[in-house]
Design a protein around this nucleic acid. Sequence first.
DNA 1: AAGATATCCAACATTTTGTAGATTAACTTG
DNA 2: CAAGTTAATCTACAAAATGTTGGATATCTT
Lengths: 203, 203
Amino acid sequence: MEPSKDLRVKRTYKLLSESLLELMKKMPFEKITITDICNNAMVHRTTFYTHFTDKYDLLKYSLSELEKPFDTGAVKEESFEGYKEFYMDAAQKTLCYIDSHIEIFKVFLKKNQEDSLVTMIQNALTEKLTQKLLKCQETGIKLPVPVPVLANIYAGGCLNVLIWWIEQDRPCSLDQLLEYLDILIQPLSIPDSPRQHSPAISS
Amino acid sequence: MEPSKDLRVKRTYKLLSESLLELMKKMPFEKITITDICNNAMVHRTTFYTHFTDKYDLLKYSLSELEKPFDTGAVKEESFEGYKEFYMDAAQKTLCYIDSHIEIFKVFLKKNQEDSLVTMIQNALTEKLTQKLLKCQETGIKLPVPVPVLANIYAGGCLNVLIWWIEQDRPCSLDQLLEYLDILIQPLSIPDSPRQHSPAISS
DNA sequence: AAGATATCCAACATTTTGTAGATTAACTTG
DNA sequence: CAAGTTAATCTACAAAATGTTGGATATCTT
């Protein structure tokens, strides 16, 4: 996974990695071939194979480089008593890091719209929630944050818990899980603004 | 996208789709070739090309079939006044549907651990949060739901908002976004159980 | 029953992948 | 800086996968 100290190797890793990124700005990863990457990097294809087994291997390396700061120093685990403070600190560090490397993250974080079921379901859920939230707003209910932010928090959180639940082979019953979601959702809204119940403005 | 009324076509779509799913249970999607899919489905490869351009095209179709219920009747948009009720209803419908097709969803929802930056970052964040939450629990703080549920809700929600923010080309400032997260996180915890601040039990 | 059309089949060109051995160039270490 | 090590390049090749063709056969729709 790690390039040796040899300058040539480091150079090769860098060239291939940057080449991949460059190509990913132009076309989807699936369409990119090893030949493409090598030509673009001006590195011989046999050299590619001395370091990586396939393009996924290279991708993995490139991503691990980007992800490093999240694993190491970027987030200090000590010196917070509550987990909310800890969470906000982590969120801030994450945000800042991504913000300062935005072009790269734009490429790598882009959802593939149509070839990920998670994304598709999340999109559907987010869309419906957005509609509903907009309607609620029309009826005079005040939301603490913009609609898309709320919709994405809800949908993302829910889906992620869901995936955890599936990957753990359903460690609790379905009803139990729903109860958890219900508990978490209750307080997560309109913390202090009054709920003005005015009649709906049609649809 | 949609197969015609011709029985032969419907059959081909079904065979190919099921074949892909079957193979995905055994090996990662990237390793599966069109030839594999056709052999397994006992459908000639030229037939494949009359309907799909590549394997991603087939995957897209298969996923869209699974996702259909989310777009259509599974979630009724009317007859809820608050969005919390709406959300819980949607969550319930989603959960039930997935639960009743669990084997399929297990295959399609599985995160690819190492070739998705979103997943990697999310894992890192979830891991850190879990550690922190466990420590908090040790100090006597009572959590309303199990640690992994809370960690996954937080991490998933945060990352999803982040992705939304990036894909929308940062529609608000970084500080603004952090403020939103802060607002949303404040109420999302320990709704009614008392916070017993006892001294930390080392680490 | 007749026309339309999907499937199958054989054959082929092209692209991509992955490997091997030999040569050249660059780096590390003492 | 010299010697030994190791990486990169190059040529060549084998195997696999992709994508397209034209025509024969079977099946469906109306």
